[in-house]
Nucleic acid binder design. Structure first.
Lengths: 333, 333
DNA sequence: ATCGATTCCGTAAACGATTAAGTGAATGAT
DNA sequence: ATCATTCACTTAATCGTTTACGGAATCGAT
């Protein structure tokens, strides 16, 4: 049996109230008694019962919930690592749920978190706009929450984001500076705001040198994986005007394009430059190494946790941060 | 305010006991009353309070704890995905902790899980043998637990493993069948039993054709990452007798070797064959694509959860399973 | 000496559920 | 008609804490 405050109280012949007060460093208790309690607590190896505390306080002070589209995805799992890494030995516990880009599943997870009184939630919303409703649901309940990676128009809450516009702009501009002019883009699904922002960055970079974006050069890839990248490259190269560069919204897409290029003896980057997004593990391991836009998931995760803890302690605070993008030039461009 | 059983009880003018019995499908209650309670529960949108139940029952029936060396690692995060993926809409919640291969951190996490009354623990122990003490600590507490990936000598509890001996044996044998005879191995640290097992497989394959393993051809790489792979290759090729094949205990090591080969114009697989381990995402994206030993993390994770749930329901069961290995032949050998 | 304020501690209720024990009414057996 | 059994429900304790409230003792001021 684990020691409870009752055991300590009995040992000292005092009430549990006194013990509780001593352990929680409250007033209304003498220093002498406080000392005695602390000694006995150590002696009996007392550990507070988190569940009982949660029930009484109606919040699991030291538990945060994290919901990710996938734990298997390099960028997301890096965020998770940022969150779970204990900075200075803090003792937060993290619950994890995978939405799989499914809004309904996302809602289920959030409700489960709620059941368990999580102190706060770190959420990477699905690509679907309806995730907004889930976000608002959390808001109504008053649970502190911080969004990572995606947000919504006019979103007033806390978030941590990456500068997608600048990332895409820099990437496109980089291709332009390499002398490329027929620059295609592989974007995401239509309801993905993040993809839209990157698309805007791409268009703006083209406009800045008076190049109109050619709609035949822009392909939507809903899953944004390697296979779609391969397929999109196929489509692009089936047209009469062929691109001399492709900016891809994910590294996976870029790897798919790269594979297509290899299969069809298109030399990279001479004939075709390729730029990906996220600086995944693969980006530096494919040949040629992929030029990509870096997103520091670890740092984003760490900061999200920091912010969230602030928000738990002081519910009125709102934190917003946009990480600047960083173009990592490698061999594919 | 959320509805509690008290609200339902008041609504119907009955005691909370009756409500509890109805909701939990117990005896000692009339069908008519059971129906009424269920209706009102639905009407008032009742959701049980998991925390209160945990406190009373002294176990968080629907929460499992997972501790991984790293959530960022492809194989481990695939296991995690297997665990979090809800098969038939089960409502288990998972708490996650990262040991970072640190036995002390592992212990902290386990203790935190314990604080929260987790119903069971899925553990991928650190490489360090001392993890055994943590495992035994959980055992003494009686918390159901299942080990994945690594176990210990004479371990009597539940585990899910991969057939490391066969994996290494097959990989080595494959290299032999390609005509290679100077086969080096990059293994892990000395206290890593998993590495030892793979080493045994390697040695046995060599012995079977009367080749003695050459100690100069076996290099220990404690972190087993890309950089160490590169360094180990450097060492091997600095020797007078150079290997014509290298079997690596991780894909990361293999990628490092591959990079060395590229930098030094050693043709793969003609001059040097390379085999990795784990079938990570990189394995199929490097050029040439990496031959590797497949480990189905997803399936292992799923099964671990299934087993664990069985164990939670019936504490006397012990489940042990060794997944057979699968050599995935690609272009690096 | 008397009164109010302060200090230090205890009593008991509460958080939301489960469950052992008890009770009154209906039922059945003889 | 009488007694035992079963049925259907309630009372109250419990899990391990926190906390509003109350009260005795001490202190200082007048």
């Amino acid at each position: 049996m684990r020691t409870t405050i009752k055991d300590i109280a009995n040992y000292l012949n005092v009430s549990t109230t006194t013990v509780s007060r001593a352990l929680n460093d409250k007033d209304d208790i003498s220093d002498k008694m406080r000392q005695k309690v602390l000694e006995v607590a150590k002696l009996l190896d007392y550990k507070p019962n988190s569940i009982a505390i949660s029930l009484r306080k109606k919040t699991s002070e030291k538990v945060i919930g994290v919901v990710l589209p996938s734990v298997n995805h390099y960028f997301f799992s890096t965020i998770l690592r940022g969150i779970t890494t204990t900075g200075h030995g803090d003792d937060y516990l993290v619950m994890i749920g995978e939405s799989n880009q499914d809004v309904k599943r996302e809602k289920e997870i959030i409700n489960q978190f709620d059941d368990h009184y999580v102190a706060g939630i770190i959420l990477v919303p699905t690509r679907n706009k309806d995730s907004r409703e889930n976000v608002e649901m959390i808001g109504r309940r008053g649970t502190p929450m911080i969004l990572i990676d995606r947000t919504f128009d006019d979103y007033q809450g806390s978030y941590i984001q990456h500068d997608d516009f600048k990332g895409a702009y820099d990437a496109t501009n980089h291709l332009i500076s390499q002398g490329k002019r027929k620059i295609a883009m592989l974007k995401g699904g239509h309801d993905c705001s993040l993809s839209q922002t990157r698309y805007d960055g791409y268009k703006t970079a083209l406009n800045d040198i008076n190049l109109k974006s050619n709609s035949a050069f822009v392909i939507s890839c809903t899953n944004a994986n390697k296979e779609e990248g391969y397929g999109a490259a196929q489509k692009l190269f089936a047209q009469s005007i062929k691109p001399d560069a492709i900016f891809c919204i994910t590294d996976q897409l870029a790897v798919g394009v790269l594979e297509y290029a290899k299969d069809h003896k298109i030399s990279v980057p001479a004939e075709l430059s390729i730029v990906g997004y996220s600086n995944s593990e693969i980006a530096q391991n494919v040949t040629p190494k992929l030029t990509t836009v870096g997103q520091d998931g670890f740092e984003m995760g760490q900061l999200a946790k920091e912010y969230l803890i602030e928000m738990v302690l002081r519910p009125e605070v709102i934190r917003q941060k946009v990480f600047s993008s960083e173009l990592i030039k490698r061999d594919s461009s």
